[in-house]
Design a binder for these strands. Sequence first.
RNA 1: GCCGAUGUGGCUCAGUGGUAGAGCAAUUCACUCGUAAUGAAUAGGUCGUGAGUUCGACUCUCACCAUCGGCUCCA
Length: 627
Amino acid sequence: MGGTVRPAPQRGWNAWFFCIYEGGNDMFDFSSEEGRTSYRHTSSHILAQAVKRLWPDTKLAIGPAIDDGFYYDFDRDETFNKEDLEKIEDMMSKIIRENLPVERFVLPRVEARKMMEQMNEPYKVELIDDLPEDAEISFYRQGEFTDLCAGPHLESTGEVKAYKLTMVAGAYWRGSEKNKMLRRIYGTSFPDKGLLKEHLNRIEEAKKRDHNKIGRELKYFTTAECIGQGLPIMLPKGTRVLQTLIRFVEDEEIKRGYQYTRTPFLAKSDLYKISGHWYHYRDGMFLMGDTSALERGDPDADDSEIYALRPMTCPFQYHAYLNESRSYRDLPIRYAETSTLFRNESSGEMHGLIRLRQFTISEGHLICTPEQLEPEFKGALDLATYILDSVGLLEDVTYRFSKWDINNKEKYVGTAEEWEAVQDQMRRILNDLGLNYKEADGEAAFYGPKLDIQTKNVWGKEDTLVTIQIDFQQGKLFGMEYTDSDGQKKYPYIIHRTSIGCYERTLALLLEKYAGALPLWMAPEQARILPISDKHADAAKVIAADLIGKGLRVEVDLREEKIGKKIRQAQIEKAPYMLVIGDKEVEDGTLSVRSRYEGDLGTMAIDAVAEMLLREISDKIIHHQTL
RNA sequence: GCCGAUGUGGCUCAGUGGUAGAGCAAUUCACUCGUAAUGAAUAGGUCGUGAGUUCGACUCUCACCAUCGGCUCCA
């Protein structure tokens, strides 16, 4: 650290520390990516050191820094329970108090391997064996603990000021379910206790917005054990929102030149054999009929009478195209469908309304010539952007360019040349759009690369909201020719796309974003009329009928309760507007208006109330709502 | 599917090897009420399901189902 002057210590995000990495030391603060990574990386080494001190037989796997903290994977027969975590935390505190200096050193491959063998760390040996020829093999040592690690790290264990182990989970070695399941301990760390506490509080607050909790409490949906996992019952409130969203999306798509289809929910295996689903996606499908031969793996079995519920709409809509001979003059054809899909997800994967076995997607396929590919792709993205902006989710999304995995060719249809060519083409389009995206290998669909619009739920877990995919395979597989201007038969490109994604998932994310208080235009109940006493019930019913006639979603609270109680309940149930009616209002033909955001707005004429609400709805005004 | 946690009336939660309570909600009665909870009474649970251990299980064991978190997978 030759001659670097150490500034005065700072606290919080500006806390600085030196980090040791390849090539020397440098100073970073916690607000920098490098600073945070070093901080959490050293935290994970302290965790591993503590575990090794407590249970020396435990084998080490990997322990990186992640977005909000760090984890370390261990191979150990017993699970880590609550008491174990407490013991580990105590030992970590001790290691921090020991203020052990961290030291980096490099070994030639043979010696590195020998050292890890001597330390009886088979996972580390495997990691070394898989490092590229020319890689520098570095280790970090703190006290008696040495770990194979690329770094960077803090200068000393004493730099870690505040940390917390948050949970234990199973995780496959190297992320493959074919490998042994290891035991992963997650934690997080910060330069002071205040920041840690703030972070933990933020997580607690976020969980209060969990759609799975709020959506059930507010009666959007429910589930029943005897129906099954991933099969929610949408209650009237949830259904009203879905209906609102579906109408909005369908109307917008029709404006943009889409034609709607209604295709079957199931088909014979023959169809899926052509599309490739039978070979690339069968595990994800619900099959019907005699599947016993299939299960035995009998290659000569007759599976022509096996039906399957559709996991995707594509091959069905292709048959709409195939209904007549097509010319280049017909293209582009834009098919859309509000499509129910069925996927046999593994039992551990279902989550609220976010991962389901039956769901509804704003499906669509754009069938076009090579020249039309770019404008159609851009049009699809523009539509999705418009829709997501309208519901308020656009500000939360990131873009992912999902490519195939060249090392896993058997998962995909088509040749390497075709994949590389179409991916290059897609990259050009994305760059041309100036989209800020990150590339992801191995995330493509089996038939082509995708642009995924990603968002995060309250647990911080990323999910795909919308996807736009280029397919250069299925046109050919299905014989979807068109006659070009030169009289030649050609195969079209197909863009698979959604505009709002899966309606149930979008609803889930909306509930979380707005903590259950949806913007007026989407709210299942837009106003609740609250009579002061039952003397005003009849007038309330007449007004409700009037407002409902004007297109508003209105309910009346006719219970014999005090107005304070009715208001409290309407607030809790997230009614956007409360319309109080008593003697005064009946006499004047007015309503006393209360907004759940702004409180009492005073008395207004009934028509003025309707007009105000209708304007807020047509403008799709979004209130940013806290809990 | 794998690892771990959880499962008590509609909801939130107490509880103990000797066949269960509270608050909210519901129902009834009284009050006819002016911007976040009126009072009283009543009713409601084979303690997720099924086996097993036990004289006896909601409580112990096992299996299954569902919910939650993570892994894998994915819209």
